[in-house]
Computed example of a mutant assay.
Amino acid sequence: MKRLAVYCGSASPEDPRYLALAREVGATLAERGIGVVYGGGRLGLMGAVASGALEAGGEVIGVIPDALANSEVANHDCTELFTVSGMHERKQRFTDLSDGFVTIPGGVGTMDELWEAMSWAQLGYHTKPVGLLNAFGFYDHLIAFNDRMAEVGFVRPAHQGILIARETMPDLLEAMSEYRPHTPIFAMKASDL
């Protein structure tokens, strides 16, 4: 994995562990020679991931919609900063530029990015690993919900391994490096669906 898209919040929670985690994620990726592709902002966890990676000598590619770039939240310290027309183009660029996806704590936008990466993998738009860093138990309920969807039958058995969740970044990166693509919906027969 040469580059990973990192999905996370643009907010700065009161609990300082979240910003520290984001900086650590950026630094860990840089130290392993893995470039960061992220939302291009300088605020919150987003900015902390970029700072952590840049301070560790890593590559940081930002992708930001023009509406956000024009509101002065763009991080011009990035190795490269792309301004795109909107969120759909932004997420497509994340997919095009990265070899996988890592989601750390965040809010609604972060969930949108995670679920789209999972959905696109399930369908067959990409065959890249989708990682979830469950630091501090932040995503315990989301993981349980994903398991519930599988139990009920809304996630096919072939797709239950798409979401790779671990509690530490080293464990997550190791699991992501071992990911083997599944059979996407586009390649399934009607009887498999």
Rank of each mutant, 00 (worst) to 15 (best):
154 F>E: 10
97 L>N: 07
191 S>A: 15
158 A>V: 14
145 F>R: 12
59 E>Q: 12
107 G>S: 14
83 T>Y: 00
188 M>F: 11
3 R>G: 05
93 R>I: 03
130 V>I: 14
165 A>H: 08
76 H>M: 12
126 H>V: 02
50 A>M: 07
160 Q>P: 04
8 C>S: 03
34 I>D: 06
101 F>N: 00
166 R>Q: 14
150 A>G: 14
128 K>T: 03
61 I>S: 01
116 E>N: 11
161 G>E: 14
109 G>E: 08
5 A>C: 13
69 A>L: 07
40 G>P: 06
105 P>V: 05
100 G>S: 08
22 A>Y: 02
49 V>N: 00
8 C>V: 01
162 I>H: 04
183 T>Q: 13
21 L>T: 01
108 V>I: 15
123 L>K: 02
179 Y>P: 07
175 A>T: 07
139 Y>Q: 02
172 L>P: 00
124 G>T: 02
21 L>A: 06
6 V>N: 03
79 T>E: 13
54 L>N: 12
7 Y>T: 00
100 G>I: 03
158 A>T: 11
143 I>W: 09
165 A>Y: 08
28 T>M: 07
114 L>W: 06
125 Y>G: 03
84 V>W: 01
97 L>F: 12
46 M>S: 04
1 M>E: 07
1 M>P: 06
147 D>R: 13
32 R>Y: 06
176 M>N: 03
46 M>Y: 01
64 I>T: 10
166 R>D: 07
47 G>S: 12
119 S>C: 15
24 E>H: 13
15 D>T: 05
143 I>Q: 11
169 M>Q: 05
135 A>D: 01
13 P>S: 07
45 L>A: 04
164 I>P: 00
133 L>W: 00
98 S>W: 06
127 T>I: 01
7 Y>I: 04
127 T>H: 10
11 A>L: 09
69 A>W: 03
133 L>G: 02
80 E>L: 14
54 L>H: 12
28 T>K: 06
67 A>Q: 09
163 L>A: 13
30 A>K: 07
54 L>W: 06
125 Y>N: 08
98 S>K: 04
93 R>H: 09
174 E>M: 10
87 M>V: 04
34 I>G: 05
70 N>S: 14
83 T>I: 15
1 M>L: 13
43 L>S: 13
120 W>L: 15
158 A>N: 12
45 L>H: 00
52 G>P: 05
95 T>F: 00
144 A>Q: 14
10 S>F: 03
39 G>H: 00
79 T>F: 13
26 G>F: 03
110 T>H: 05
180 R>E: 14
27 A>N: 11
9 G>A: 13
184 P>V: 02
18 Y>Q: 05
166 R>V: 02
16 P>H: 11
13 P>T: 04
136 F>R: 10
13 P>M: 08
